[in-house]
């Protein structure tokens, strides 16, 4: 078997143009998911009965279904649903033409990440000794201020390795966005390959790009963890 190295080198450069979409999708999903996930974690920690039930049901729904299925379901449902919604309010906004499928991908991955992050946040927050909250309020801070200055900064350090895991999984997971016609790294590789059937070369390119990106991300997280966790025992 002969590899077409010229094609491979060419495609390697081309595939990088999908990195933007992949990283944007990942970053947006994480950023949009974080506040909601934090809220869910707090509902469960505070023992809010209704909120805890909804959160638990939601988390087991996300964990119990394949992400491919979630993508297919949302991608078939959401556009039609939005269309009906716009018609109902009398707008002639054409959902099918005007909304970039990228945003449906953002929706799926955000909803997915919310569930994963909620669990990570919850266990991280619980790992901080409740005595520090008591100490905070005993010297005149509000509970909110204590969370902001004391509990959350420490919980983030605890959660860092798990958040890194979620990020890396998200980067790899977003490759499924090609199902929604989003042109991410994987999609561009496939398209390039399909002209001359150079699938192996293209897949190898895609393979290396993911490895490089994920390695850099992991190093960045490790650096960040060491930096913001400097207060821990040396």
């Amino acid at each position: 078997m002969e590899l077409d190295y010229a094609f491979m080198a060419d495609t390697f450069i081309k595939v990088w143009s999908g990195a933007g979409a992949t990283l944007e999708l990942t970053a947006l999903s994480l950023l949009l998911a974080a506040p909601l996930a934090f809220y869910m974690a707090m509902l469960r920690i505070k023992g809010h009965v209704f909120g805890s039930c909804v959160t638990k049901a939601y988390i087991s729904f996300v964990r119990g279904t394949p992400i491919v299925l979630q993508i297919l379901l949302l991608y078939s449902l959401l556009p039609s649903f939005l269309n009906v919604l716009f018609r109902a309010v009398g707008s002639d906004f054409n959902v099918f033409d005007r909304v970039d499928p990228f945003w449906y991908a953002v929706a799926v991955f955000t909803l997915n990440t919310v569930a994963l992050l909620a669990e990570v946040f919850r266990s991280a927050l619980l790992s901080i000794s409740p005595g520090q909250l008591e100490a905070g309020v005993s010297i005149g801070l509000s509970e909110l201020q204590t969370y902001r200055h004391i509990i959350i900064p420490q919980a983030i350090v605890v959660a860092m390795p798990s958040i890194c895991n979620i990020t890396v999984n998200l980067i790899k997971g977003t490759s499924l966005a090609f199902l929604m016609t989003v042109k991410d790294i994987t999609a561009i590789g496939k398209i390039a390959a399909s002209y001359g059937y150079n699938y192996i070369e293209a897949y190898l390119d895609v393979f290396f790009v993911y490895i490089i990106i994920c390695t850099v991300i992991q190093l960045a997280y490790r650096f960040a963890e060491q930096h913001i966790g400097a207060f821990r025992a040396v």
Binding site: G131, Q132, A135, H149, I150
Partner: peptide, 17 residues
Amino acid sequence: RRKTAFVFQGYNLFSNK
């Protein structure tokens, strides 16, 4: 709480400060 202060058995210092 503003007029009182508490010293804890387990110190409860803020670890990140």
